[in-house]
């Protein structure tokens, strides 16, 4: 297993940081843009400002990746692990409350 996060995880970390630091100002612009009682011109300008933000500051740019391997697909959100690491850890008994089904 790699010691540090891989480049895609680093990218995701940067995106999370960007979202956090720009969230308040983005929220303010969004409020103005979505408020139908404000003049159309102001709303449009707010929307243009929103469009100027870099892509990684959008909350949807943040992706859930496996916190241990960095895999981007097959993530079990509740545990933040990819399916395979989840299986390994669950079978090893490292995830409390998770048990292999048998009936």
């Amino acid at each position: 297993m790699p010691i540090g996060p891989n480049s895609k995880v680093l990218r995701d970390m940067a995106s999370r940081q960007a979202v956090q630091s720009n969230e308040l100002i983005r929220r303010a612009y969004k409020y103005i843009a979505r408020n139908t009682t404000l003049p159309q011109r102001v709303r449009h300008q707010a929307q243009l400002q929103l469009n100027l933000f870099p892509n990684k500051t959008r909350p949807v740019a943040v992706k859930e990746r496996c916190t241990e391997t960095g895999r981007g697909r097959g993530i079990i959100t509740e545990f933040g692990l990819c399916r395979y690491r989840f299986r390994e850890k669950a079978l090893a008994g490292d995830i409390p409350g998770v048990k292999k089904a048998s009936w």
Binding site: P5, V9, D12, M13, R16, Q17, V19, Q20, S21, E23, L24, R27, K30, Y31, I32, A33, R34, N35, T36, T37, P59, V62, E64, T67, G80
Partner: peptide
């Protein structure tokens, strides 16, 4: 009317996003 209060009421997601990775 659509006065955008929905946008202000939503909680900020940034702080919890930062705690995702160890």
């Amino acid at each position: 009317l659509r006065i955008g209060s929905k946008v202000l009421k939503q909680r900020l997601v940034g702080p919890s996003m930062l705690t995702y990775y160890p």
